[in-house]
Simulated assay, not measured.
Amino acid sequence: MASIILPRVLEVGAGAMARLPAVLQGLGCRNPLIVTDRMMAQLGYLERLRGLLAEAGMGGDVFADTLPEPTAASLEGGLAMVRDGDYDAVVALGGGSPIDSAKAIAVLGRHGGIINDYRFPRQVDEAGLPVIAIPTTAGTGSEATRFTIITDERTDEKLLCVGAAFMPVAALVDYELTVSVPPRTTADTGIDAMTHAIEAYVSRKANGYSDSQALAALRLIGPHLRRAYHDGEDRAAREAMMLGATLAGVAFCNSSVALVHGMSRPIGAFFHVPHGLSNAMLLPAVTEYSLPAASARYADCARALGFAGLDDDDARANAKLLDTLVAINDELQVPTPAGFGIDRDRFFEVRHTMAEQALASGSPGNNPRVPEAEEIVRLYEALW
């Protein structure tokens, strides 16, 4: 049996952001706290959002100090505002990091404690303040998931927090907000979304519902990722990627992620590599490692992505999948860890710790081929 959880409201398409006042009204909310970052202010999106709220006679206080990789400390300013204010909702505007920050602020602001109290394996189902997510990248799918990831900067560990409390009540999925996203971020977030859909489909927790969403996401992402990267003004590609990212979020929220994500989080925590970029670095090698345990499923992914033909047998489809994943990383200029600027000695020094943290996250246990710690260490070494 699969237990499916989704946002109560999903507004999808051009101009969806303008629905915010009506969505808040429908939830009985009038005084939201907007959680965002400085880039949204610079791009003018924050001003537009506050204008929509002001026209409807609603509040619009702002916490704009979220970090690209949120930490326990980076939440403090927003938490202080929630504790001292009279907010009845949290509006998250931005990529995965502002949305993850908003989820944590909404739960901690209502229930207290520190983020470590909420880490997996605890299931957090007690509702916080309602979150309305407005994603501005086609990537994390955080607008449609019951997860948030916050780094504990004292230990350099990314904490996974799970439960219905972290599922936004509403998501306004407006692809027009992604047209200004630069190529590097388009690539990283797009490969992140592709990874979500692939891992959801090959996961040991996959089910009929998550399969349908994962395959739909892959059919959208495969033909449009490179188009959006090369031409940010390609609205058809932007629209397909945005919907694909949300469907991939729905897929892995109701299945799981697997080994790529398990290994990716420690790289992000230790070396401050953006999450989508560390996924991209890992995806070809981890797919090759995992393939023998789920050959038919990976072949389905290759065909859905359009990397293989419908008449290709599984072996041929999977060979094309591996070749295309490597080719996409080349075309989208995904750097190696060395190319990113990571120090080799430090990387090798912490590889065993990273492997233990990856296993502790639980994600590798959902992989079709479940690794031992030493196998993860070898994959990190091969990645270098």
Score class of each variant (00 low, 15 high):
residue 1 M to E: 10
residue 1 M to G: 10
residue 1 M to F: 12
residue 3 S to F: 11
residue 3 S to K: 14
residue 4 I to G: 05
residue 4 I to A: 09
residue 5 I to W: 11
residue 5 I to S: 13
residue 8 R to H: 08
residue 8 R to P: 06
residue 9 V to L: 11
residue 13 G to Q: 11
residue 15 G to L: 04
residue 16 A to Q: 02
residue 17 M to I: 15
residue 18 A to N: 10
residue 18 A to K: 13
residue 19 R to W: 03
residue 21 P to Y: 11
residue 24 L to G: 03
residue 26 G to D: 11
residue 29 C to P: 02
residue 33 L to G: 01
residue 38 R to Y: 08
residue 39 M to F: 12
residue 43 L to V: 13
residue 45 Y to S: 00
residue 46 L to E: 02
residue 47 E to H: 12
residue 54 A to T: 14
residue 57 G to H: 12
residue 57 G to Q: 12
residue 59 G to L: 10
residue 60 G to F: 14
residue 62 V to M: 00
residue 63 F to N: 01
residue 67 L to A: 09
residue 69 E to L: 14
residue 75 L to V: 15
residue 78 G to L: 13
residue 79 L to N: 05
residue 81 M to C: 07
residue 82 V to W: 01
residue 83 R to T: 14
residue 83 R to Q: 07
residue 85 G to E: 02
residue 89 A to R: 07
residue 90 V to D: 13
residue 90 V to Y: 15
residue 91 V to D: 04
residue 91 V to G: 03
residue 93 L to W: 12
residue 96 G to R: 01
residue 99 I to E: 01
residue 99 I to H: 06
residue 103 K to D: 01
residue 106 A to D: 09
residue 106 A to P: 11
residue 106 A to W: 13
residue 113 G to P: 06
residue 114 I to W: 03
residue 120 F to T: 12
residue 121 P to T: 03
residue 123 Q to M: 15
residue 125 D to I: 14
residue 125 D to R: 09
residue 129 L to C: 01
residue 130 P to Y: 04
residue 133 A to S: 04
residue 135 P to Y: 07
residue 135 P to L: 00
residue 139 G to N: 07
residue 141 G to M: 01
